Structures are given as C-alpha cells and as structure tokens.
Simulated scan of single mutants.
Amino acid sequence: MKSANRFVLLDGLRGVAAFIVLVFHLVQQHTLTALPYASLAVDFFYVLSGFVVAYAYERKILSGQMQTREFIGIRIKRLYPLIFLSTSIGILMAMLAVVFKDSITLLQLLKVSALGLLVLPSFVFPQWQTAYPLNMASWSLTFEAFANLAYISVVRQLTNKALILVVAISWLALLFLVTYAGGISGGNNQEGWYLGFFRVVFPFFTGVALYRFKPQPKEHLVTGMALLLVFSVILMVNLPHYAICSLIYVSIIFPAIVYAGSGITISHGINAFLHQLGLISYPIYIMQGPLLRIGEEIMKHIHSNTMTWLFSILEFCVVVFVSWIASKYLDEPVQRILRGEKRLLQGDFVRHS
C-alpha cells in the first residue's frame, strides 16, 4: 500500500471539517446561535495536526536526520504562503476602510498589518471583538505554531510515558477551560485570547499519541464512509449542555475518529475524491476570512432576507473557487520551488497537511 493512500480517509475528514467551518461562518452572517459545535472543527484540526506532524517528522527528528531549525523552516514554508496571501487581501480591505470610511487610521492599519503578517493577535481595535481583524482564521495558526514549537522542544525526551503524562495534564487544562469559559472556546477574540493555549495542547499531543499507537491499516470502504457521515453530523447538530458535550467531543470523539480513520485505507474510486478534499481543505480554511469580509460589506446593501441567503450560496462558491485558484496557481508552484522540485518522502497526505 502506497503511503499516499494510507491516510486518505483523514484527508477526507480534514476536507469535511474545512467545509463545515466555511458553512459555519456563512451562517454566522445571518445568526450567531446556529451550529455551535461547528467551531470545534478547529480542535479536530489540532488532533489531526499532532498525528500528521508526528507521522511526518518524528522518526527523522529522533534519528538526528532533522534538526529543530529545519523542522521550523519546513512548517513555515508549508503554511505561510497562503497566510501571506489571505492576510494581504485583508490588508487591502482595511486600506479601503482607511480611505473611504475613515473608521481606522493609517497608523492603526500599519500596526495591525505587521501583527497579521506575523500571525500574531491584534489589540489595536478595542471596538471589535476579534483579535485577528485581517483574517479571522489566522488565530488557530498562532496556536498551531505554539504547539509545533512545544513539540519540537520536547520530542527528544518525550517517551511514551512522558507523552501520556503530558496528555493527562493538558486534559486538566482543558477541563479548566471548560469550567472557566463554559465550554471549549477561546483564542480568536481579544477577550480570552490566552485561553487558546489551554485549548491546543491536549488535542495536539493526543494526535501525537495516536500516531505512536496507531492501528494497522485495513481496507474498509463502508466503515470509512460511515465515519465521514458521523463526523459531519456531530459538527452540524445542536445539542444541549455545550460545556459537557464539547469536552466529550474533544476528549473522546475526535481522537476516536482520527484513530479509526488512520486505520482505514480506501482504494476505490472515492480515493481520488477524498484526496482532493484534503488538498483544498487548508486553502478554504485560511482564505475564507477576508473573502467573507468582502461579502459582508456587499450584504449590507441587500435588504431581502431571501437574497441574502442566496448571496451566501454565491459566497460559498466564490470561496471554493478562489481557494482552488490560490492553491493551484500560488501555493503549489511556491511549494515546488521551496522543495526544489523534490517530492517529500512521506507522500501527498503529509505534503498537504
């Protein structure tokens, strides 16, 4: 079995999560109370990220083939081109606000642009809740970077026993977050931004543990499709008792889905479709923020409720199309240049994670 096919179901799950995040943000343009669990897709990304990073790099790091600086460089090269593009679109939108709305100053724009391009939170605009005004999806990348740095700092000393201890202690931090914030939340807004540190450690290092104890792969199309369906449903439902349920999602359900998905291989025609879902997932996730911000400005001039929902469907299509263009004509060529036209040994799943 080729490694490119090994985790194709995880590719599909990541793609489904990215589309659900997009739908969540589109629905938020109309109501802020719908799809409360869709935002937990980010926590699923963290579990998946821990698994992928460990799968791709742990053996090389432990064998001495890869040093800390190289690991950091690889992760920046993989993630930053589309961060730069999407944040630049956000900067252009903010520039229009400086010129035509006079709602922000040029100095404020320069400050928030520098922070945005560095993927750091901004507290420049106290009148707005978000800590990432140029690109709302960037917040999770800040904590992704933190988790990656924490991992590379300790992985050489991270025995299985030590890893289990890290997971246990970080779960207590997650429990604190749930108790303090009323559920799994935090990291994206100025208020409670620091809670993102409590949020990321458990799912990320749980993903690392899942890699260490991953099952042997087996071909099972029906189980794989059922897993995709179940995952979609649990993110779209509206269950009561968000605090308890969100803790169960991140503590049990998401790790179980990644564990099960890592043990399922699919060689049927659906393989290619799932692979494409994986390829488009990150572009859709990181590009949607500034594009939807443009849509929000247009929507202010639409006074029909029906038309606003139809416009949201158009936004969905635009985000998918622009994300595909950005992936194919910017990110892929840049990645080829950065790789020196060489394919990574771990396969497509790793290259696009």
Rank of each mutant, 00 (worst) to 15 (best):
V155L: 06
A260G: 08
G269E: 04
Q129K: 15
A168N: 05
S232E: 02
I83D: 00
V23P: 08
G15I: 11
K161F: 09
A54K: 05
P333C: 12
V42I: 13
L10I: 15
S140A: 13
F254R: 02
R212M: 07
A150P: 01
L310Q: 07
E70S: 14
L118W: 06
R199V: 08
V23W: 12
P283I: 12
L221I: 12
L314R: 01
H303A: 06
R343V: 11
A326I: 04
S49R: 09
S304W: 04
F213L: 09
L274F: 07
G278H: 09
F349D: 02
L274V: 00
F273I: 15
V52G: 12
S3C: 01
F202C: 10
T87Q: 00
Y55K: 02
F44M: 00
F316H: 01
I152G: 01
H220Q: 10
T31A: 15
I270L: 15
G64R: 01
L134E: 05
I264W: 12
L22W: 06
P133F: 05
V201H: 02
E191K: 10
M299G: 03
G207W: 10
A97Q: 13
L175F: 13
P81V: 07
L174I: 05
I74A: 14
F176H: 10
T105E: 07
G347E: 04
G116S: 04
G192M: 04
A56H: 00
W324T: 12
G73S: 05
L338A: 13
I76K: 00
G50C: 08
V237W: 14
M95A: 05
S153M: 14
E332S: 11
Y180E: 10
L9A: 03
I234R: 00
R199L: 10
F205A: 02
I286S: 04
T105N: 07
A181M: 09
F311Y: 15
Q190W: 08
I104E: 02
Q28L: 11
S312K: 08
S170D: 05
V322A: 12
L279H: 06
Y249L: 05
I325F: 11
W128G: 01
I164T: 10
L292E: 02
V154F: 14
A56V: 13
L279Q: 11
I264N: 07
K328F: 08
G183L: 02
L141T: 10
S138A: 15
V318T: 09
R14W: 11
L247Y: 11
A150K: 02
Y194G: 15
L115M: 09
G269K: 14
L221E: 10
W193S: 14
M307H: 13
F123W: 13
N305I: 14
V258E: 07
P36S: 07
T223F: 08
P215A: 07
M1K: 03
S327M: 15
A17W: 08
G278N: 08
D43M: 05
I244K: 02
Q346M: 13
G183I: 03
A260K: 12
D331M: 11
I253Q: 02
T33Y: 10
S327R: 10
E144V: 11
G50Q: 06
N188R: 12
P81H: 06
G12R: 11
V16F: 12
E219D: 13
Y151R: 00
L149Q: 02
L26G: 01
Y37D: 07
I76D: 02
I325L: 15
L158E: 03
I74V: 10
I164V: 14
N135C: 07
I76T: 07
F231G: 03
F143G: 04
F44D: 00
N305K: 08
M287A: 09
G278F: 11
